[in-house]
Amino acid sequence: MSEPPQEQPRPEAEIDTPPRGLPQPEPAAQPPVPAADSGAAPGPGAGAAPVWGAGPPAPPTPQRRRASTVHVLQVIALVVGLVGTGWISSEHFRTVWLGSERDEPVAVDGAGAATHEGLTVSLVEATDLGATPSLPGTDWQPPSGFHAWRVVLDAESTNPDLFACDVALVDGGGRHFVANLFVDSFVDGFEWTFSCGVPEPDDDVPAQQALLVLVPADAEPTAVEITSTGFSSGYIELEID
């Protein structure tokens, strides 16, 4: 082991120390007031720079200025990121949802008829034919657990863009049971489609069209809904009494 050098500099030698013979101040008891602003009577040693008290605030160093700039840039990046994320994630809302017209049923008049884009429809009948209906001209019967419904609509149209419309029985749970699906298409007394266009002179479409609908036995239809791809928006909904 080597011997330590004889003359080791003391740690306190690296900081300023008051001249010998002066009383040492008590930092805890005196507020750190700059000497220039204190206005106190000069005491012994007046004019000398304060040694233990706090001096004037140091000017910001280059490192501190760089750190504050980095913090500002971080906040800007965070804001830009959040705004960009919100803009991208709201694309469907901005481009599709806001631009689309809300599909609402048209109003029904006092006579129970609704007119929409040249088509006037009223509900004549919506009847549950039961699980074993007597259907002329066919042997078809609903599957077990289902009923057949008969829907009769009265329609008048002046809209040349319409040909056939979709008719559905709607229950309280929002289930749509579309007419002429899952049933026999050729049943005497029933139409195989609901004609809603302007009738041609040689058309044999009756004024009141009957449609066949397959409905689960537990369903309780509350309305008849008429829709068409020919409608620009909206649809017709007729309540079942």
Partner: peptide, 9 residues
């Protein structure tokens, strides 16, 4: 194929 509400195919 086409199926309906609670109409199994």
């Amino acid at each position: 194929w086409l199926a309906g509400p609670d109409i199994w195919v």
